[in-house]
Simulated scan of single mutants.
Amino acid sequence: MNLFSQVPIEKPSFDIQYQDGIFCLGSCFVAEIGERLKQAKFQTLINPFGTQFHPLAMENVLSRVYTRSYYTEKEIYNYQGLFFSWDHSHLFSRPKLKQVLDLVNESIEEANDFLTRTSVFVFTLGTAWAYYLNGGFSVSNCHKVPQKNFNKLLLSEKEVFDALRNMVLMVKDVKPNAKIIFTVSPVRHVRDGYRENHVSKGVLHRALHVLLREYQDVNYFPSYEIVLDELRDYRYYDKDLVHLNELGVDYIWDKFKSTYFSGETQGMMQEVDKMLMALAHKPINPEGVEHRKFLFDTMKKLERLAMQMPKNSLNEEINELKNRIHVY
């Protein structure tokens, strides 16, 4: 007996392997998935400019990285003693202009380098609502500047589609055979209003629907639909009743794994997880012979596992074990 409806997930024409670099861009939901990819020791870059919610902001990030367009002093602003960029999250804000300029341009360097080495792109769309400076351009973060300085506008289906298509074209120019995954964030933007959130998600879905018909090699992962139809219970949500809690994200993560990872890759992920759990083991007698043998055996297993993975993936863990063995 089925107690809830299950969302069918179309099997993509590709799978993700450990040799693939994974570029994650978009809302806070893609950051959740990206962190799990990092924990599993995939080569992953998450939101090089910080969280991006609407498609114009995402297109801008990819464009600056793709063209390696560095920021100038004229693009750095100041409010209440902090310098910042409208394209970046508050994590890049600093008390000195040069500090911000260095940070944002370093993020372009790092992301551009990763862009040339990656083959998987995961884009998560959060909202179709965008904020524009009065008489100016759209921003990705308001930096707590008073709302009177902005106009809030709903992007049109064409604006969203054009932004998404430009993203696909940039990716394909760098990596013609790139594996591209789009998803709509299941997180509700209730600050925009409950009805307004549904209107916004509808615009995103319509634009994506057209894009997927035009680019049949671009894949769609139904995280939004899974949450809507399979996780209707608030026990899957955080205290704010908007964001998914760890249980909810784990449920989506399991669906993501079974969709995009082969059995062999999932087996390696399990081995990595076992090794990391062993690394976190707290011994009763850390200086005892048994524990030293345990550390040595774990290190050897990690070294064998590292031979099947991208270079340097497990170096940090292996070096930590070597240091522990030396200390004890």
Results as ranks from 00 to 15, higher is better:
Asp113Thr: 14
Ala40Asn: 13
Leu97Ile: 10
Pro48Tyr: 04
Phe49Asn: 08
Leu37Asn: 06
Trp129Met: 02
Tyr70Gly: 01
Gln39Pro: 07
Leu97Glu: 06
Phe137Trp: 12
Phe121Trp: 11
Ser138Cys: 08
Gln99Pro: 03
Leu56Gly: 03
Lys38Thr: 14
Ala111Arg: 10
Leu45Asp: 01
Thr72Ile: 04
Lys98Phe: 10
Gly50Ala: 05
Asp113Tyr: 15
Leu37Arg: 07
Asn141Tyr: 09
Ser89Met: 01
Val120Gly: 03
Phe49Ser: 06
Asp102His: 13
Val104Glu: 01
Asn141Ala: 09
Gly50Arg: 09
Ser63Leu: 08
Arg68Glu: 15
Thr116Gln: 15
Pro48Gln: 03
Pro55Ile: 08
Phe121Cys: 07
Tyr132Asn: 03
Lys41Asp: 05
Phe137Thr: 14
Ala128Thr: 03
Leu45Pro: 09
Ser138Tyr: 10
Pro95Met: 04
Met58Arg: 01
Ser69Thr: 13
Asn112Ser: 15
Phe137Glu: 14
Thr116Ser: 14
Ser69Lys: 13
Val139Asp: 00
Ser138Pro: 12
Tyr66Trp: 15
Tyr66Thr: 12
Ser138Leu: 07
Ala57Cys: 01
Lys38Met: 13
Asn47Ile: 04
Leu125Met: 12
Lys41Ala: 08
Glu109Trp: 03
Phe53Trp: 11
Lys98Tyr: 11
Thr118Pro: 05
Ser85Leu: 10
